[in-house]
């Protein structure tokens, strides 16, 4: 954990701000949708893998999904707050998202529903808090 002073000086940073967008004050996942053929991408592609078009629109992805699988990671490179839980979340539009999973409300379950949020995932070398999008379980477990 980093010192309070560093955190105050730097402020939290997103691991990869390109993956998210703010819409109506809420964090959303930002994918891409090919203007020519409609193929979806996440992260938003620079080129369409289906038709090679370079015209890709932003596409806000759904904020809930089903947990395909997960693991609680106890050994990781420096910078991540271990232990942390990661998982693959399947969205209704057919995209699978790798994400940190916040299971503070209830333990994760494969097949359970999880909701998009944001939170602390690590600490940068300069002491700044690293945030990212994540998916969270809800109180009461599987819904």
């Amino acid at each position: 954990m980093s010192g309070q002073k560093d955190e105050a000086a730097e402020g939290p940073r997103f691991v990869d701000p390109e993956l998210v967008a703010l819409q109506g004050g809420r964090l959303q996942l930002k994918g891409g949708c090919c203007k020519s053929c409609g193929a979806l991408s996440f992260p938003k592609g620079q080129v369409c893998t289906q038709c090679l078009s370079l015209e890709i629109d932003d596409k806000i992805l759904s904020g809930e999904g089903e947990l395909y699988s997960y693991s609680r990671v106890h050994m990781a490179p420096k910078g991540w707050d271990v232990p942390y839980t990661v998982g693959y979340v399947d969205l209704a539009e057919g995209i699978r998202i790798f994400a940190h999973i916040d299971e503070s409300a209830s333990p994760v379950q494969i097949g359970g529903r999880v909701w998009l949020g944001e939170g602390r995932v690590g600490t940068a070398p300069d002491g700044a808090i690293l945030k990212s999008y994540l998916f969270a379980t809800v109180a009461g477990g599987r819904t």
Binding site: D16, S71, V73, V86, Y88, H100
Partner: peptide, 14 residues
Amino acid sequence: QGMVMPALYAMRAK
């Protein structure tokens, strides 16, 4: 975003 090889295989296992 924090993927490590053990986690990838661990998700397969789970």
